[in-house]
């Protein structure tokens, strides 16, 4: 009798919780551990990322931020040395059980910290992903290329030389090209790994404005070394330290000192890292 009542209560509670959340869960990460050989890069990471939010990840070097991103994109198939344990649910599907990893990757756009202009023309760099999806029509490709380059704030600088090699652009331009390429995937999830390293402050601000708009169309994970960038952009933020996720929380709350662990405040205020 008591049991059934308890059960009912628990059920009601979880119902109210789910209605309170409202937001759909994009990524559900539980007990995620990534290791290289015997060394764990991150261990026991648990949190959820909701749709149409910008989720910031901050933390000093070696905190495991990049390893976390690599696990999301199943980049471990590329690195035989990298081992991933735990569960990652993407749209509710366990990504380790997918039959076609390429389909997952094509829905996740990644911008690496160092710009990678593929050794092909600017146009081809951006048209590659649509072409992989099977779009052959020149007019549609033109349209996609222009739209993506405009959004990444690169169009004005390269519109007259779309046929020059992407790898010959300057570092900052290549970074924006990389962002354009990621956008050309029309991804559901956009991962930016310290995108502003190679970009000047003015362009960084322009891209940040674009990210705020993009939030309406996709979920964004923003890994950044610039704590203030996380504050400007992220709805929620996670703090990584030495392979552990110290805490996650509402960005403003974290920055206002509502933290579970004082280390978070110490890092945000620049006392270490």
């Amino acid at each position: 009798m008591v049991d059934t009542m308890l059960e009912a209560m628990v059920q009601r509670k979880s119902e109210t919780e789910s209605t309170a959340e409202q937001k759909k869960i994009k990524l559900d990460i539980s007990d995620l551990t990534v290791s290289y050989g015997k060394e764990a890069a991150i261990s026991d990471v648990n949190f959820k990322i909701y749709e149409n939010e910008i989720f910031g990840i901050i933390g000093p070097a070696n905190a495991g931020k990049t390893s976390f991103l690599k696990a999301l994109n199943l980049m471990n198939t590329f690195d035989a040395n990298m081992k991933v344990e735990g569960k990652i649910l993407f749209n509710g599907r366990d990504i380790h059980q997918l039959k076609n990893v390429y389909a997952l990757r094509s829905r996740i756009g990644v911008v690496f910290p160092l710009p990678v202009g593929l050794p092909m023309t600017v146009y081809e760099n951006v048209a590659l992903s649509p072409r992989l999806r099977g779009i052959k029509d020149k007019a549609s490709l033109d349209e996609i290329v222009q739209r993506c380059l405009q959004r990444s704030a690169l169009w004005d600088e390269v519109k007259d030389r779309l046929d020059s090699l992407g790898s010959l652009l300057s570092g900052g331009q290549q970074q924006r090209l990389t962002i354009a390429r990621a956008l050309s995937q029309e991804p559901e999830l956009l991962i930016l790994d310290e995108f502003s390293i190679a970009v000047d402050p003015v362009t960084t601000m322009r891209i940040e404005e674009v990210l705020k708009e993009l939030k309406n169309e996709m979920t964004i994970i923003l890994v950044t070394n610039l704590v203030q960038q996380a504050r400007r952009l992220a709805d929620r933020t996670a703090f990584f330290l030495e392979g552990e996720c110290i805490e996650t929380g509402d960005t403003e709350a974290l920055f206002n000192g509502q933290v579970e662990n004082s280390k978070t405040t110490d890092y945000i205020e620049g006392r270490f890292g």
């Binding site: 990678v116 593929l118 990621a182």
Partner: peptide, 21 residues
Amino acid sequence: DRYREAAEALGATRWQVIYKT
């Protein structure tokens, strides 16, 4: 390797990575 990683991240299959990049 960053070329391969970039192409893989776009969702290219291994053969597409080799052939296109």
